[in-house]
């Protein structure tokens, strides 16, 4: 660890020999991964390959059994035995879920202000102001007083994005953010994410949107059976995949 992170930027995420089992199933197998601040990393792989599990380890939604995981200089221990560090990490790492997971009993604006008020201790008017700015940024300022169920899927997912951004995260995780959306709504969510990437947010994205991945990713990681089979810049990974597994996966998904 560097004493002065500004001269030598430490990776914001560092995984070493990360291992996770679900019973007999080896979900993550000796994962080594470093993510630098400002980087956009897209994780691809077949369903059940462990890609979602991988990013859910980063904010402790999944425990792992062996290895090292550091997020923004906070160390997560195996078996979730690091609640203090976990709490810190979760305030610094935002997440957008496949199923949006908005809070249905709260209005859009309250969804966005809940964590800033309760976790960051912001005053309500201050949090509301920030929330309105974020909702404006994702194009749904006019829906602030509605409830999630009154919004379309695409709008809900953009609220979820604004909610995560309200905590001013240093890193954003996206777990298949467009997989539950009707096709005509995928674009609006990807646009908002594209914008975020342009602004320099560090992002780790699990997605099946290969065109989007090619466009925004600095690096693409292909996971197969819990192992990082291949990684590289999008042009390299998509155009000249080295590994046979990567080739057959891409052949299957790019055909459509």
């Amino acid at each position: 660890m560097t004493a002065n992170p500004s001269s030598h930027p430490a990776p914001i995420v560092r995984m070493e020999k990360l291992n996770k089992h679900f019973g007999a199933l080896h979900v993550l197998n000796n994962i080594d991964l470093e993510i630098t601040s400002g980087e956009v990393v897209v994780v691809i792989g077949a369903s059940g390959s462990g890609k979602s599990t991988l990013i859910r380890c980063i904010n402790g939604l999944e425990e792992f059994q062996a290895g090292t995981l550091e997020v923004d200089n906070n160390t997560l221990k195996p078996y979730g035995k690091s609640s203090k560090a976990l709490q810190t990490i979760r305030t610094e790492v935002g997440m957008v879920f496949q199923q949006f997971n908005l809070f249905p009993h709260l209005s859009v604006i309250d969804n966005v202000t809940l964590a800033p008020i309760k976790v960051r201790g912001q005053r309500r008017d201050q949090a509301t102001q920030t929330a309105k700015r974020l909702l404006d940024r994702v194009g749904i300022a006019d829906q602030a007083n509605k409830y999630p169920s009154q919004l379309s899927g695409g709008q809900q997912q953009r609220v979820a994005l604004a909610r995560a951004l309200a905590m001013e995260p240093r890193l954003m995780l996206f777990d298949e953010p467009t997989s539950a959306l009707d096709p005509e709504m995928i674009g609006e969510v990807l646009d908002a994410m594209r914008e975020l990437a342009r602004e320099g947010m560090t992002m780790v994205i699990v997605t099946h949107e290969m065109g989007f991945a090619r466009e925004v990713a600095d690096r693409v990681i292909f996971i197969h059976k819990g192992e990082i089979t291949e990684e590289g810049p999008p042009e390299q990974l998509f155009d000249t995949p080295q590994h046979e597994r990567t080739q057959s996966f891409l052949a299957r998904v790019l055909k459509h």
Binding site: G60, R90, M95, Q99, L102, F103, L114, R120, A164, M167
Partner: peptide, 13 residues
Amino acid sequence: ERGQREASLSLGL
């Protein structure tokens, strides 16, 4: 739903 808990924990609650 489990996602409600996960979303709230992921926000630092």
